[in-house]
């Protein structure tokens, strides 16, 4: 056999690991997901070389999307340097040879577990979310046939009842993450377990948002500039978390903060969950001094 033109990636494997027929199947599902914002498209999720629950849905989306011109960023709870982010970034660096980055602004493709970067996203960027439970109605209606029919009939009363019961019991809507949203005034969608702090970033974002659930075999999408409304009531409007502290490292008061326990005597500090955002700010301050 004559030597073909060299293809980037890992010898013995196809570019980006998946075979071409699988990529076509995923690509068709992505296009239908974009055409019906917020609707969960079933797809034939494959076994991947990592366990369900570790981002197999996101990895399959990224594998179907990624090309040699892409610059990939992978975050886990906002951080570029945690286990899940490091191993997925390494997986794609190995199987595609593409450039990777930790800088949000430099990335064309951002795979994320449970955060949206603080740096505003731009037109042309694609976010890939790892989703454990794609069905927002699943905790209220366990039967797939029924929840699917409820989406078909736009029958979302039970979701509002759940939020109302929260208010009765706790005086406020207690859901802090995976906070349900209404997409394009039609489908109720689970935004994946991002904190509700990130929900406003979904609304009319210039970036394309894709959601992949590997174990549950669903793909869904938010095209750019799509109306995304967090469910609420007129007298109990949607609110995001806020903190009395600033980030202990960069001093940010407008970012999502993680609480870090520093000793066993009650010591703690609050730092930005988005490590890139924090680093950009500390570097900028250092430069200005």
């Amino acid at each position: 056999m004559t030597a073909a033109a060299p293809q980037p990636g890992l010898a013995g494997y196809n570019f980006a690991y998946l075979d071409e027929q699988t990529k076509r199947m995923i690509r068709r599902a992505i296009l239908k997901a974009v055409a019906i914002p917020g609707y969960q498209v079933p797809f034939a999720s494959r076994e991947m070389p990592l366990s369900y629950g570790w981002g197999t849905g996101g990895v399959q989306l990224t594998a179907a999307l990624i090309g040699p011109d892409d610059v990939l960023k992978v975050i886990d709870q906002g951080a570029d340097d945690t286990t899940n982010a490091v191993s997925i970034r390494k997986f794609f660096a190995t199987t595609t040879g593409v450039a990777t980055t930790t800088r949000t602004a430099a990335a064309t493709l951002i795979q994320t577990r449970h955060r949206i970067p603080e740096t505003p996203l731009a037109d042309g960027q694609i976010m890939v979310f790892q989703v454990p439970i794609p069905e927002p109605l699943r905790w209220l209606e366990r039967r797939e046939v029924e929840s699917r029919r409820m989406h078909a009939l736009e029958d979302y009363g039970v979701m509002y009842v759940k939020l109302y019961e929260d208010i009765v019991r706790h005086g406020k809507i207690a859901t802090a993450y995976d906070y349900p949203v209404m997409v394009n005034q039609r489908y109720v969608m689970a935004p994946s377990p991002i904190p509700k702090f990130d929900n406003p970033k979904l609304d009319r974002s210039p970036a394309l948002m894709l959601f992949g659930a590997g174990r549950e075999k669903r793909i869904y999408a938010l095209p750019p500039y799509t109306a995304v409304k967090s469910l609420d009531f007129e007298d109990h409007p949607f609110e995001v978390q806020s903190w009395s502290q600033a980030c202990a490292l960069c001093g940010a008061t407008d970012s999502y903060l993680d609480e870090i326990i520093t000793d066993d005597r009650g010591g703690r500090m609050f730092v930005c969950s988005d490590t890139d955002h924090c680093r950009q700010r500390t570097t900028a301050e250092g430069n200005s001094r």
Binding site: A5, Q7, N14, F15, E20, K23, R24, R27, I30, L31, V34, A64, L65, I66, G67, P68, D69, L208
Partner: peptide, 14 residues
Amino acid sequence: RPVLDSQRVFRAVL
């Protein structure tokens, strides 16, 4: 180049 070309075409369609 079927693998790389179809990826670029898909991104254009997307």
